[in-house]
Computed example of a mutant assay.
Amino acid sequence: MQTFLLAATCALVLNIVVAGVRALRGPSTRDRMTALLLLSTTGSAALVVLAQAVDVPALRTAALVLVALASLTVVVRVTGERDRA
């Protein structure tokens, strides 16, 4: 089971790399923001799976913090766009 979890973590990290490339190349800021949200949610998923594989509960806490920061980023971005309109 641990091998499967580590393989799943590797697949998630590959997804993070692809989203990072998209965030750098995105034609608009909205595309970049979507890629950054994908990075944060996939990163938190990778942390949770890795926490289960290596039995380190602190990684779950780090994943929770990452999701909270991503949520805050979305709120700030949407509020900024609404104020401009």
Rank of each mutant, 00 (worst) to 15 (best):
V49H: 04
L66Y: 06
V48G: 04
A68G: 05
L36K: 01
P57Q: 08
R30W: 15
L66S: 07
A58R: 06
T29K: 11
A63I: 07
T29Y: 12
L36R: 01
S40Q: 04
L39Y: 06
R32Q: 14
L39G: 00
M33S: 05
A53E: 03
L59Q: 04
L69F: 14
S28G: 09
A46W: 07
A35I: 15
L64R: 09
A53S: 07
T42S: 04
V48D: 02
L59G: 02
L59R: 07
A45N: 13
L36A: 13
T34D: 13
L39D: 06
T29Q: 14
A46F: 10
L38C: 11
T29L: 12
L38Y: 06
A45W: 15
A35Y: 12
L50S: 13
P57I: 04
A68L: 09
A62D: 01
A35C: 10
Q52W: 10
L37C: 12
A62K: 02
A51V: 02
V49I: 10
V56T: 15
R60H: 07
T41I: 06
A63Q: 02
T41H: 08
Q52L: 14
R30S: 05
A35L: 15
A62S: 09
L69M: 15
D31N: 11
A58D: 15
R32N: 06
T41W: 06
A45T: 15
L66H: 03
L36S: 08
D55S: 05
V67N: 04
L64N: 04
A51Y: 09
R32S: 12
V48W: 01
L36N: 01
R30G: 08
L47V: 04
L50C: 08
V54G: 11
